[in-house]
Computed example of a mutant assay.
Amino acid sequence: MTTYLDQPEEKEMSFIDHLEELRWHLIRSVIAILVFSVVAFISVDFVFNTVIFGPARPDFWTFKMLCKLAEAINSPALCIEALDFKIQSRQMTGQFTMHITSSFVIGLIVAFPYVFWEFWKFISPGLHMTEKSISRGAVFSVTVLFTTGVLFGYFIMSPLAVSFLAGYQVSDLVNNEFDITSYISTLSSLVLGSGLLFQLPIVVYFLSKLGLVTPALMRHYRKHAVVVILIMGAVFTPPDPLSQILIALPLLGLYQFSIFISAGVHRRAARKAKKEELKYKDS
């Protein structure tokens, strides 16, 4: 028989069990990241020569497609046949440090869906039934959007950014010789940043559910968003309009898609409120 005096102890044990469960979710997530990081560390030749330095070579898939597109539309400026820069290591520990850092970043990217699933397993039991129905398919949606963003960042943003920065010169007296730390940091930021940027529809969905974001608000600031996106396209692409459009269109589409999501959320909320109002009047 449970007495009143026993209740605080039960609550304390329940809280401790809760922390223990969180600890194991964190441990499994860290293990997954470390496993993929070790695999990436061992596969040094493939990781660096194929993956990391791929966007720095003119035979990269994106540059080949741009050359084919240049031929099709008769725009030679779009075809990038050479990248005039060198990558150096100016610090004694530079290559070793970047080997570890890049392995960890790759491990984090590959393990991200599993890590999110682990955290979702910890969070979801505490949600109410309505909250669970709202967030149904969250793991799948986050994984698809993150993967799409990473691919976009790697195959679109990274090669165009590398091409622009490699060819940018303030004077003919200055040669572009980039440190390996700078190159890998830039590449990692673009890929991870793009993966996180593509979570915008998910963020808008939950903020709309909470009533913090409305489609009217997003439409009001759409012009500001367009300006920001066009500036990003101008900065991270070669100096031609077509390349800027290649960057800007997916980002504009992502913003517009988020407006549709917010509008859908508010329509469903309005219909639900109307049904409850009718039930109240009938009663």
Score class of each variant (00 low, 15 high):
Phe119Ala: 05
Ile33Asp: 00
Phe36Cys: 11
Met218Ser: 03
Val162Leu: 13
Val203Arg: 06
Met232Ala: 14
Asp240Glu: 12
Asp17Pro: 14
Phe48Arg: 00
Asp17Ile: 11
Ile247Arg: 05
Ile33Gly: 01
Val265Lys: 08
Lys274Thr: 01
Phe260Asn: 01
Met65Gly: 09
Arg28Glu: 01
Gln95Gly: 09
Leu278Trp: 05
Val38Pro: 14
Gly149Val: 03
Ile31His: 02
Glu177His: 15
Ser258Asn: 02
Ala270Lys: 07
Glu20Cys: 13
Leu5Lys: 07
Ser208Ala: 13
Ser133His: 10
Pro201Ser: 02
Phe146Pro: 00
Ile16Ala: 10
Ser141Lys: 08
Leu254Ser: 04
Lys209Pro: 06
Asp6Met: 11
Ile73Arg: 12
Val191Ile: 15
Ile245Lys: 04
Thr97Val: 15
Gln256Glu: 12
Arg28Gly: 01
Phe178Gly: 13
Asp240Pro: 00
Val226Thr: 06
Asn176Met: 09
Asp84Ile: 12
Val150Lys: 02
Thr93Cys: 11
Ser133Cys: 02
Ser102Pro: 05
Lys223Pro: 00
Ser14Asn: 09
Pro55His: 06
Gln95Glu: 08
Trp120Asn: 07
Glu71Met: 12
Pro215Asn: 00
Leu78Lys: 10
Arg219Trp: 05
Ser141Phe: 08
Lys68Ile: 06
Gly211Gln: 02
Thr181Tyr: 12
Phe155Asp: 01
Ile123Gly: 06
Phe119Tyr: 07
Phe236Ser: 03
Pro201Tyr: 00
Leu246Phe: 08
Ile73Ala: 07
Phe48Lys: 00
Ser258Gln: 02
Ile156Lys: 12
Leu5Asn: 07
Met13Tyr: 15
Asn175Cys: 14
Phe155Thr: 09
Pro238Asp: 08
Tyr255Ile: 02
Ile231Leu: 11
Lys209Glu: 13
Ile261Trp: 11
Val115Lys: 10
Gln199Pro: 14
Ser185Tyr: 10
Arg23Gly: 06
Phe48Ser: 00
Thr101Phe: 12
Pro215Gln: 01
Leu197Val: 15
